[in-house]
Amino acid sequence: MSDVGISDSIPTWFWKTGPYFSLNLSHNHIHGRLPNELRIPIFLGTIVDLSSNHLQGNLPFVGAEVIWLDLSHNSFSGSITDFLCKESAHLKELQILNLASNNLSEKIPNCWRMWPELVEVNLGNKLCGPPLLLNCTMEGEVPDENEKERKNDGVKWVFVSVAFGFIVGFWGFVGPLFIYKSWRYAYYRFLDDMCYKLQSCM
């Protein structure tokens, strides 16, 4: 039922139907919240794709039978820690996880040992910490975009300062030699004297 124009919330009774080998409700206009725990009557190896909708609220906990979970391009928010670190009595079989383009923002917890079969992950939110390349702040928060821009501006000013210093230093010495002929002759005589003394020492 992907891309069929569904524009409603998912009723509670829906999660009691099934079982499913694949549940694909992606690219619709489904809104509302999912239950805290999706107790779907499904078979082992099920694909759940709810991407590209308007779902909100916390990320739901999904049973161990799911191997592919795509919740990307929604408006999920809240803590990713509860989702990743929730204890389960059964070994999680999830292999592919996509949470990109939601409203998740915090440090990623180190709970990957609970997902031993995971081979592909797309977190793609305002998250920080391993396995992402974006490091968290000392307080364990996501770096502020404006702060990064200010730092980048600071780096640019360093180059400007170096260039300005070079120009002032160079022309502060060479400029008078071009302007004042007597200074230029005196400088040339000084160089000649130095060359003569060096030759004498040799």
Score class of each variant (00 low, 15 high):
residue 198 L to K: 11
residue 17 T to L: 13
residue 144 D to K: 10
residue 91 L to Q: 06
residue 34 L to T: 08
residue 52 S to H: 13
residue 191 L to K: 03
residue 103 N to M: 04
residue 176 P to M: 03
residue 169 G to D: 00
residue 6 I to M: 15
residue 183 W to V: 03
residue 36 N to R: 12
residue 60 P to E: 09
residue 4 V to I: 15
residue 19 P to R: 04
residue 29 H to S: 05
residue 94 L to C: 08
residue 139 E to Q: 08
residue 163 A to E: 02
residue 124 G to W: 13
residue 105 S to D: 11
residue 132 L to G: 06
residue 27 H to N: 15
residue 76 F to W: 00
residue 59 L to F: 08
residue 132 L to M: 11
residue 66 V to T: 09
residue 97 L to Q: 01
residue 119 V to K: 15
residue 123 L to G: 01
residue 37 E to N: 07
residue 139 E to L: 05
residue 20 Y to Q: 00
residue 41 P to G: 00
residue 6 I to Y: 09
residue 103 N to C: 04
residue 116 P to C: 14
residue 165 G to M: 01
residue 46 T to H: 08
residue 98 N to P: 04
residue 17 T to R: 12
residue 98 N to I: 14
residue 38 L to S: 03
residue 126 K to M: 10
residue 13 W to V: 15
residue 81 T to H: 03
residue 130 P to F: 15
residue 34 L to E: 09
residue 51 S to T: 04
residue 67 I to F: 04
residue 194 M to A: 14
residue 44 L to E: 07
residue 62 V to E: 04
residue 51 S to Q: 00
residue 186 A to S: 12
residue 183 W to D: 14
residue 48 V to W: 00
residue 110 N to F: 12
residue 72 S to M: 08
residue 80 I to L: 03
residue 202 M to T: 10
residue 26 S to Y: 08
residue 27 H to M: 10
residue 155 V to C: 06
residue 199 Q to E: 15
residue 5 G to E: 06
residue 65 E to G: 02
residue 43 F to V: 10
residue 61 F to K: 15
residue 129 G to Y: 06
residue 161 S to M: 12
residue 57 G to I: 13
residue 147 E to S: 11
residue 202 M to F: 13
residue 71 L to E: 07
residue 183 W to N: 13
residue 144 D to N: 12
residue 136 C to S: 05
residue 90 H to Q: 12
residue 13 W to A: 13
residue 156 K to G: 06
residue 11 P to F: 14
